[in-house]
Amino acid sequence: MSRHVIGIFEKIENAASAVRPLERESFKKEDMELLTGCQYPDGAVIEEDWDVPLWKFAVVGGLLGLMVGVFLAGATQWWMNLDVGGKPMAALPPLGVICYETTLLGVILGSLAGLFWFAGLPDWTDLPYDAEISRGKIALLVTCSDERQTELVRKIMVESGAQKVTLTEEES
């Protein structure tokens, strides 16, 4: 059974001040999660230092798109061939135009797939969450293993100026 403590902070400074004491109590970075209604610079509260390898998705998507383009405007011309009075079966300029478009479509779809993959979407299950973040509040979520830790976290958060601290438990 894992317990999640969510502290709601009004100001970013308060949320940030809770991180250091938590780390001192041997809470690791993986145990803490920051939930916000808008983007904050990395390291403002928690430092992830995570260089998302999104380019892999974009490159794979682009290559797939390029293959679709070559297949459509090149290969199928031989497959569904039609003699047009001595003109070449597959013409290069159209191939270029079609490949440009399909490659970029592949990159865009790849990036979208990357968003879903790395951000863990879609996921409609009830993960620990507090709707207060939509009102501009900052939520700091800490995963604890037992009662003692829970109390400790609650204390640290209140001391750092949390407006509200809630506890959720989930079977696992």
Partner: peptide, 18 residues
């Protein structure tokens, strides 16, 4: 022989025969 109408048809409804 170099008909301008042929390459612009998207469905090959007009084309050059041998």
């Amino acid at each position: 022989d170099k008909a301008p109408c042929e390459p612009v048809c998207p469905v090959f409804a007009t084309y050059h025969n041998p």
